[in-house]
């Protein structure tokens, strides 16, 4: 049976990083085969950069990512100040390699994730 590693990352781990730093960190974990549960909502620019960079890496074995997030879609001035002060604005982001995440679905209050390896991956092919 293939194991699936899930990495829970606190918002503090990414605080102080710029967009490229955050995305680079996330890609390292995803390419390592783990699913990330991030204690924060990624900002639109981060999501955009993440998709852009991972699309540039797609090949036969890495087919991209699945991502889902909870939290306010709009970055208001209050949350901007909270972030500047190193605080948490609430929210959550789940990201993982597309080959591991069979289905991901969210609404405004919850994320539902089904993960599993394909048979050929479990067999090491």
């Amino acid at each position: 049976m293939g194991d699936i590693r899930i990495e829970f990352v606190s918002s503090a781990a990414l605080s102080g990083m710029d967009s490229r730093g955050k995305v680079g960190y996330l890609i390292d974990v995803i390419k390592g085969g783990s699913i990330i549960v991030l204690e924060d909502k990624l900002q639109p620019d981060d999501e955009r950069l993440l998709i852009e960079q991972t699309m540039g890496m797609v090949d036969d074995t890495f087919t991209g990512i699945e991502i889902s997030s909870l939290g306010s879609e709009k970055e208001g001035w209050k949350s901007a100040i909270i972030r500047l002060l190193g605080g948490k604005t609430g929210g959550m982001t789940v990201i993982g390699p597309a080959r591991l995440i069979r289905a991901i679905k969210n609404d405004s209050t919850k994320i539902n994730l089904l993960a599993g390896m394909r048979q050929e991956e479990r067999d090491g092919k």
Partner: peptide
């Protein structure tokens, strides 16, 4: 289809920003 997908959220979030 279900509209509440991350692709739609990311597109709208970036346009709104």
């Amino acid at each position: 289809e279900d509209p509440y997908t991350q692709v739609n959220i990311t597109i709208l979030g970036n346009l709104e920003a």
